[in-house]
Computed example of a mutant assay.
Amino acid sequence: MFGLGRKAAPAPDGQWLERGGERFWLPWKKHAKARRLKLLVGSNGPRLTLPPRVSEKAARAFVDEHADWLWTQWARHAGVQQSPLAIGEAAELPWFGQRLPVQWHADRALHILREDWHWRIHTSARSSDRQLQAALLQAYRQYGQGWFLQRAQGYLQELPKAPAAVRVRPLRSLWGSLNAADAITLDVALLFAPEPVAEYVLVHELCHLLQRNHSPKFWREVEKRCPDWRDHREYLRAHGPTIKAEARRLFG
């Protein structure tokens, strides 16, 4: 499949993609354990991972087949490589798969409120963009912790014990974790994803209270509580790098 062959010519380090006067570089990276061609999107944009013996012709054909998806991902990636949120600028902030407009208000102190269909941000003449980043992170963490705690209630009766704590903070690569003291930590960037996706990660970590591994038994526990977990995991694989990049932009 994909033109694999023992005498394939060495693949180049990448290729330029061009469309409508725009172009970007798609790096190619061979991996000894790769079984198939795979397109990934990271904080530096898309890249192509190749099995050791794939031919250049097969790789280019694979890229052509997925060109529309690549350009969509590149546009999203380029969109989050903007400057941090600046006080007073027209902006929208993510909230569970939506983008809610920001309403700015002059006040005596900096504080942030999330209302039904918008974010309300109060700033003073002394407020700085750096302070805004910190306040925005604190607001997301506060709202997120309340949301996750409320969602967790529906699962606790089927668990041997409740988690010792549920914390929300930025995580560099993980989406969630359960530590030895039974405290759950969840990535604040999950608040940018659709609600079912964020809830899947919560369920995943709660199920580690039953199985502290990723064995078939563990995944059966996840599936009992979240039958669509595979779809949600694929969403994070496809959109996760973009979500995390936007979190870094907003929170620093």
Rank of each mutant, 00 (worst) to 15 (best):
A125H: 12
Q157P: 14
D129I: 11
L159C: 08
S124L: 03
Q142C: 06
R120E: 13
Q131V: 02
H105K: 04
Q153W: 11
I87W: 13
A91V: 03
A91I: 03
K161D: 12
G97F: 15
A86D: 07
A90S: 09
G88W: 07
W119H: 13
Q157V: 14
P160Y: 12
Q145V: 03
H105F: 02
R99T: 02
A109K: 07
G88N: 14
S124Y: 04
A139T: 06
Q131R: 06
R151L: 08
W95D: 09
D129E: 10
T123V: 13
Q98A: 15
G97R: 09
Y143F: 02
L136R: 14
G97P: 09
S127N: 12
W147A: 04
S127W: 10
A139I: 07
A139E: 07
H118N: 09
R151E: 07
H111Q: 15
L159I: 00
A109R: 04
I112S: 03
Q142V: 01
R141S: 04
W104I: 09
E158S: 07
T123L: 15
Q138A: 01
W104Q: 08
W147P: 15
I112M: 12
E115F: 02
G144V: 03
D107F: 07
L156M: 05
V102D: 12
A86P: 11
Q150G: 02
A106Q: 03
E115D: 11
G146P: 03
W117R: 07
Q150A: 11
R99G: 04
L137M: 14
L132I: 08
A91H: 05
A90L: 07
G97K: 10
R141N: 05
Q142L: 04
R141I: 00
D116V: 12
H118I: 02
L93V: 01
S127H: 05
A162E: 08
L156S: 10
A106V: 03
W104P: 00
D129P: 07
A109F: 09
R108Y: 13
L132R: 11
W147G: 09
R114W: 05
G146E: 08
W119N: 06
E92L: 14
R120N: 13
D107W: 06
P163R: 01
P163A: 05
A125V: 06
V102R: 00
R151P: 01
I87Q: 08
W119F: 05
W147T: 04
A106I: 00
A162S: 15
R126V: 03
P160E: 12
D116G: 14
D129Q: 10
Y143D: 11
L156V: 07
A109E: 13
P94A: 00
W95P: 12
A135Y: 01
S127A: 07
I121M: 09
D107H: 09
I87F: 14
P160H: 02
L132Q: 09
S124T: 08
V166P: 04
S124W: 02
R151S: 02
A162Y: 12
D129H: 04
A134E: 11
L159Q: 15
L110D: 15
G144F: 00
W117Y: 10
E92H: 01
R126D: 03
Q103S: 03
S124V: 05
W147F: 10
P160Q: 11
Y155F: 14
L137W: 10
E89D: 12
